[in-house]
Amino acid sequence: MEVVNSPDTRIRATEYLSSIWGSRYFWFSLVRMDLRSRYRRSVLGIGWSLLQPLAMTCVLCFVFSTLFGVDVKSYGAYLLIGLSFWQFVTNCILQGCRAFQSAESYIRQQPQPMLIYPLRVVLASGFHFLLSLGISVLLVWTLIGFGNLPALPMILPILLLVFALGLSLAMIASVANVYFPDTQHLAEVGLSIVFYMTPVIYTKELLSQRKLDWLVDINPLANALELLRSPILFGELPNLWRLGVASGTIGIVCLFACALFFSRQRMLIFKL
């Protein structure tokens, strides 16, 4: 098979995808190692990653129920989904910033499709996200009941959207951090601002009472979160309008990420 290396070679999307598939054993073992090495020396093992959202949920539930008299039953699961999702997003962005730097020695040795490094980050944090999402479903079942069963399969295409969003964010973060080493620091600041603009610990209704619905509509993170919550918490299919807005905003992020990533990836090694 002839491989041409020249400034004006255009790789077709199908070729790129098949080269990612071709190196699957390698990046899969990277993901596995990420998961394994994190728990190698801890007694709690996999529980560690769940500890953070669970503990936060307990604390916030306690505070909100005593101060504002919120119903713990529904709020607990609401919060857990929100916090797990937020942790997933944070991980994608902050660990995404280090995606190329931490893999530099592999990049300098063996040419691999560059996308596998942000992909590795998203898969590892996605694993934890799925675990805590599973716990949320169990929580809903024990506290509220199995009313959501018919709507649950809907969660699969929604998860696909969430995954696309996470990967896009990681792609943007990884490239940005190669060019601007202070990206990670700025991202931390930005994330804590967006956190309060997203209905993670408060409900969307609080915003609509103040005519701030548009804050949710333009925010791809809030959209994705709304989509996730409806089948798990309320056992209903997300309405078409929300689905459309969510796909639209996430699509924009995706397009931007791809444009940035694929215009830069060839020359990235010179900046490492």
């Binding site: 002839e2 290396n5 020249s6 400034p7 090694i269």
Partner: peptide
């Protein structure tokens, strides 16, 4: 060597490896 291996991209010209 790294150019031949495909680790570095060429900035002009062509490298064809089979």
């Amino acid at each position: 060597l790294k150019l031949l291996a495909g680790v570095y991209p060429v900035t002009s010209g062509r490298v064809v490896v089979n």
